[in-house]
Amino acid sequence: MSREDWDDIKYVLAVAETGTVSAAARRLGVNHATVLRRIAQYEEAAGAPLFEKTPKGYALAPDRLRLIEAMREVDRSVQSVQRMVAGVRAPVSGDVRVTSTDSLCQMVLPSVVARIALRAPELLVTLVSSNAHLDLGRIHADITIRPTMILPDDLVGTEVGRLRFAAYRATGSDADGWLGLAGQLSRSTAGRWLAGEMGAAAAGPGADSFLTLREMAALGLGIAILPDYLGRGDARLEPVEGALPDLQIPVWVACHPDLAEVPRIALMRQYLVEEMKADAGAIFD
Results as ranks from 00 to 15, higher is better:
105 C>L: 07
147 P>S: 00
13 L>G: 06
11 Y>G: 02
177 G>E: 14
36 L>C: 05
152 P>Q: 08
197 E>A: 12
211 L>F: 01
242 G>K: 04
178 W>E: 06
280 A>F: 01
96 V>P: 12
61 A>F: 03
250 P>H: 10
62 P>E: 11
258 D>P: 00
160 V>H: 02
64 R>Y: 08
3 R>W: 05
105 C>R: 04
169 R>P: 09
91 P>F: 14
29 G>H: 08
238 E>C: 01
218 A>Y: 04
126 T>A: 14
263 P>S: 09
235 A>R: 14
222 G>V: 09
208 D>T: 05
213 L>Q: 05
55 P>Y: 04
53 K>S: 12
129 S>T: 05
269 R>M: 14
198 M>Q: 13
157 G>A: 02
74 V>A: 09
188 S>W: 02
162 R>N: 06
210 F>Q: 00
67 L>V: 14
126 T>K: 15
249 I>E: 15
33 A>H: 12
43 E>M: 07
274 E>N: 08
29 G>M: 10
40 A>E: 13
172 G>H: 06
226 L>G: 03
112 V>I: 15
136 L>F: 05
105 C>Q: 09
228 D>C: 00
11 Y>S: 00
252 W>G: 03
250 P>T: 04
244 L>S: 09
74 V>Y: 11
198 M>T: 08
190 A>F: 02
195 A>Y: 04
152 P>T: 08
264 R>I: 06
87 G>R: 08
87 G>S: 10
272 L>V: 10
199 G>H: 10
5 D>K: 06
1 M>H: 11
50 L>F: 12
42 Y>F: 13
130 S>G: 03
47 G>A: 05
200 A>E: 12
21 V>M: 12
16 A>E: 03
227 P>T: 00
1 M>D: 05
113 V>I: 15
214 R>N: 01
26 R>M: 12
34 T>H: 14
93 S>L: 10
9 I>A: 07
256 H>C: 01
259 L>S: 12
93 S>Q: 15
17 E>P: 03
265 I>S: 10
70 A>E: 14
201 A>H: 15
225 I>G: 02
78 V>G: 00
61 A>P: 00
284 F>V: 00
212 T>V: 12
284 F>K: 02
92 V>G: 14
260 A>Y: 07
127 L>C: 10
220 G>Y: 05
201 A>K: 15
102 D>L: 08
270 Q>M: 09
144 T>P: 00
278 A>H: 15
263 P>A: 06
150 I>A: 08
219 L>M: 07
283 I>Q: 02
77 S>C: 06
159 E>I: 02
252 W>T: 09
207 A>P: 06
122 E>C: 05
52 E>P: 01
76 R>G: 03
6 W>A: 11
104 L>S: 04
108 V>K: 01
195 A>D: 09
137 G>E: 08
260 A>C: 03
130 S>N: 15
284 F>T: 01
212 T>W: 06
101 T>P: 07
35 V>A: 02
41 Q>K: 13
158 T>Y: 00
247 L>I: 13
6 W>K: 09
60 L>D: 10
193 W>L: 03
161 G>I: 03
144 T>C: 08
247 L>Q: 06
73 E>M: 06
254 A>M: 04
82 Q>I: 02
77 S>W: 13
123 L>S: 14
266 A>D: 07
209 S>D: 10
82 Q>A: 13
13 L>N: 04
144 T>E: 09
206 G>F: 10
22 S>L: 14
155 L>A: 05
115 R>Y: 07
137 G>D: 04
